[in-house]
């Protein structure tokens, strides 16, 4: 394994770092809020669902409705948890991958493109879980999921995946043509 002639990392642009750190901070605050405001969040979700019985298929029979609401609340809680986990993970990945792009992209234009795609995709994707959790009481589990998918997960997740494979391709080309 040969070592490069200029063997230091280049820092990613400050905006990319700020976005990634903000995402990690949101994840931490989200995790803390889930614990601190657990009751308030559950109360809001229940109240919002009860105000929209037709959306959730509530029939007015306590046994049936409680089961439906419990299931929706579990998904609501799951959405918040997934936001917490993905935001922590993607924040870290944005910092590392933009650092790799800043170091190895062959031209300034390509570097800016890669950094922008990695930052926007990586920061936007986890917000989909927050959007989904917020939409569950308002639109129902499946409709909320469909909206989050089309509004956030597919555009931002797709951007991240494309950017990651472009980065892999960039590194592979650099490996073939050192310098």
């Amino acid at each position: 394994m040969t070592e490069a002639a200029h063997p230091t990392w280049r820092l990613p642009p400050t905006p990319a770092l700020l976005v990634a750190l903000l995402l990690i901070a949101c994840a931490e605050i989200g995790g803390a809020s889930m614990v601190r405001f657990k009751l308030e969040l559950a109360r809001w979700a229940r109240g919002t669902m009860l105000a929209r019985p037709e959306i959730h298929g509530l029939v007015g029979v306590r046994d049936v409705d409680e089961q439906i609401m419990d299931e929706a609340l579990t998904r609501f809680d799951g959405g918040l948890r997934l936001f917490h986990m993905h935001a922590e993970g993607m924040g870290t990945i944005v910092i590392l991958t933009t650092m790799v792009a800043a170091t190895w992209a062959p031209t300034p234009g390509w570097r800016r493109t890669l950094v922008a795609l990695l930052t926007v995709g990586g920061a936007g994707y986890p917000l989909g879980y927050l959007v989904w959790a917020g939409l569950i009481p308002l639109r129902g589990v499946e409709d909320g999921k469909r909206l989050a998918e089309w509004l956030v997960w597919i555009p931002f997740g797709g951007t991240t995946i494309v950017a990651m494979w472009l980065l892999v391709g960039t590194l592979a080309l650099r490996l073939r043509r050192p310098g």
Binding site: W9, I161, M164, L171
Partner: peptide, 25 residues
Amino acid sequence: MRRPPLVVVLIAVFVMALGETAGAV
């Protein structure tokens, strides 16, 4: 900070890219 050899970075980024793609799949 010094950077590791390119091949180490490439493999790590490749695994991350696979992981993200698997999540979508």
